[in-house]
């Protein structure tokens, strides 16, 4: 325990040195070289960030409000993608008929980068929320189906046999064996899916939107306002990190049974 604490302190120390070095280099670079014509100093970025917490970027929304708009889109699209993806993935993995019908069609869609759906979504649904939900949905859906399908395929037939031997019927075996043994795979898919969704919402907002965190950085680009772009990027990174942490925590709770050791 003591050793662990010491180790943690040690690595924290090195992290701080590393981060401080970057910030100092960044500041020096901006102050004394031609980079300064393009980039703001870290302090400026930080000040702007604090400022935009209570003051609007663009017409009326503050930074947290822009983030909320983007997050809402992700939550809607991602939830839809999770439900549909898990259902289709399991159905394809467990029923050969569904597999035969859906797999070739899915294989048609799978290799398309989710960003490439943006123009089509705009032509189909206009520039409103539906188009964005569709883009986010596609981004999450593909990853979740691929992983869930792999999970449903590897369900141990012996384990199903065990359940039948102990008196489970088909439905009970499905819920007590198939679903639990797919859960780790579903989570792997959802983790990748969520980060792809977060990327897709940015891209969608950058291409066509009047609000949202992705819009703030393109707006910054159009106004030549580097500070605003950096504020946006930092906010995006922080939220992305939080989403990843959230997923990992959920996985740890739901897949407790896989953890060895104490």
């Amino acid at each position: 325990m003591k050793i662990k604490l010491k180790e943690m302190g040690n690595s924290l120390f090195f992290s701080l040195i590393g981060i401080a070095a970057i910030l100092i280099l960044w500041t020096l670079g901006v102050k004394f070289t031609s980079v300064g014509l393009l980039l703001p100093t870290p302090l400026e970025v930080l000040q702007r960030m604090a400022y935009t917490f209570s003051n609007a970027i663009g017409r009326e929304l503050t930074l947290p409000m822009h983030l909320a708009v983007s997050l809402r889109r992700v939550v809607i699209g991602f939830s839809l993608a999770s439900v549909c993806g898990v259902v289709l993935g399991i159905a394809m993995g467990r029923f050969r008929m569904v597999e035969a019908v859906c797999k070739p069609l899915f294989e048609l869609v799978r290799p398309i980068p989710s960003v490439a759906w943006i123009p089509l979504a705009i032509v189909w649904f206009g520039i409103g929320e539906t188009a964005k939900t569709f883009i986010i949905f596609m981004a999450g859906f593909v990853n979740i189906v691929v992983n869930t399908y792999a999970g449903a395929k590897q369900v141990d037939e012996n384990m199903l046999g065990v359940a039948y031997m102990l008196g489970a019927n088909e439905i009970q075996a499905f819920f007590h064996v198939v679903i639990p043994s797919c859960v780790p795979y579903i989570f792997a898919g959802m983790q990748v899916g969520l980060s792809t969704c977060w990327m897709a919402v940015l891209a969608a907002e950058m291409v066509s939107s009047t609000e949202g965190i992705g819009w703030t950085i393109t707006a910054g680009q159009e106004n030549g306002d580097m500070t605003q772009i950096f504020v946006g990027i930092i906010a995006i990174a922080v939220v992305g990190l939080l989403l990843a942490v959230l997923m990992r925590w959920a996985e740890r709770v739901l897949c407790r049974w896989r953890v060895r050791g104490k």
């Binding site: 031997m165 064996v177 639990p180 043994s181 049974w257 896989r258």
Partner: peptide, 21 residues
Amino acid sequence: SGPSPKRGMVYQTTNLFMWYT
């Protein structure tokens, strides 16, 4: 004619439900 709870089975590899206590 099929598996039945009247006949129990203990396997070579443990075959426990790893996700249950």
